[in-house]
Design a protein around this nucleic acid. Structure first.
Length: 263
DNA sequence: TGTGATGTTGAATG
DNA sequence: GCATTCAACATCAC
């Protein structure tokens, strides 16, 4: 699920449900995804605290507490949050939940347990330490071009690198390169300044449109790539067949006849 | 039944 | 030292 538009949608949901209510208790069913401290310590730190606001950078969502500390929610591949009152609505793979004073809960669901939850006293120090890149929606063309300079990596791998820009994942990277007819294995240093400018501009347009549609794929424009992004697909021109390859470490879908390779 | 998945990390490699 | 690649993590669905 969660790339930048999905996490942005989670953020709105979090803001709309979980701010400004005191956390009465935290229940932890499985503390595998809680980093550095035990589930019990996590619960103790949060008991009695209140989320006042949130901050998102790329796929990283931070709940900002009234004591200036932060809770980092990173959703991994299968993380999700759900606010509910009735126990019957508890998500199937809930790993922990905040219980608020009004009795409602914010449950964190995660079947695959690749999510990472952290209690952070100093958010900026953490971001500095992991060298998380500028948010993909906020990066300037200038900074993007600067970071691209001399890079020999594939454009796909470059876009996926969260230290370069934060927020683009496997699906949206394929989407951008399809829309611009650029082969994902093209080398960054073989792409023109014009290409690179188009890439960052189109990336931002796509992410923004996805956000406007609350990351709900069925509402995306008809000509977007995601619906062809599967084995056996035939391009809209009715001729070229889809191909998959491992590029930038991830399974990549593209139309080799339609997307030009620059190497 | 085996395979791969909307992600990240640290170790290995060049 | 730097840039880049790859296996590993845990579970589920096709």
């Amino acid at each position: 699920m969660p790339e930048l538009p999905e996490v942005n949608t989670f953020q709105r949901y979090f803001d709309g449900t979980s701010l400004k209510q005191k956390i009465q208790e935290v229940v932890v069913h499985d503390d595998k995804i809680i980093q550095d401290i035990s589930g019990m310590e996590f619960a103790e730190k949060l008991q009695g605290a209140t989320f006042l606001s949130s901050y998102r950078q790329g796929k990283y969502l931070f709940g900002e507490l009234d004591n200036t500390h932060n809770v980092l929610l990173h959703f991994g591949m299968t993380g999700d949050i759900k606010y509910y009152e009735d126990e019957l609505d508890k998500p199937k793979h809930e790993r922990f939940a905040f219980i608020f004073e009004n009795g409602s809960r914010l449950g964190f669901d995660c079947p695959r347990k690749f999510a990472k939850i952290r209690y952070l006293e100093d958010r900026n120090a953490y971001l500095e330490r992991i060298k998380l890149g500028t948010d993909a929606l906020r990066i300037s063309t200038k900074e993007f071009l600067e970071k691209a300079k001399g890079k020999k990596a594939s454009i796909k791998g470059f876009l996926l690198n969260q230290k370069i820009l934060a927020g683009v994942g496997n699906l949206y990277a394929d989407e951008v390169l399809y829309q611009l007819r650029i082969h994902p294995a093209s080398k960054v240093n073989k792409l023109s300044k014009k290409h690179l400018t188009n890439i960052i501009t189109r990336t931002q347009e796509i992410l923004q449109k996805a956000i406007d549609r609350t990351a709900y794929y069925k509402d995306y424009p008809d000509d977007w790539f995601w619906q062809w992004r599967k084995e056996g697909a035939i391009a809209p021109d009715g001729k070229s067949k889809i191909e998959t390859d491992k590029i930038g470490g991830r399974t990549t879908y593209f139309f080799p006849k339609y997307q030009k390779l620059y190497v």
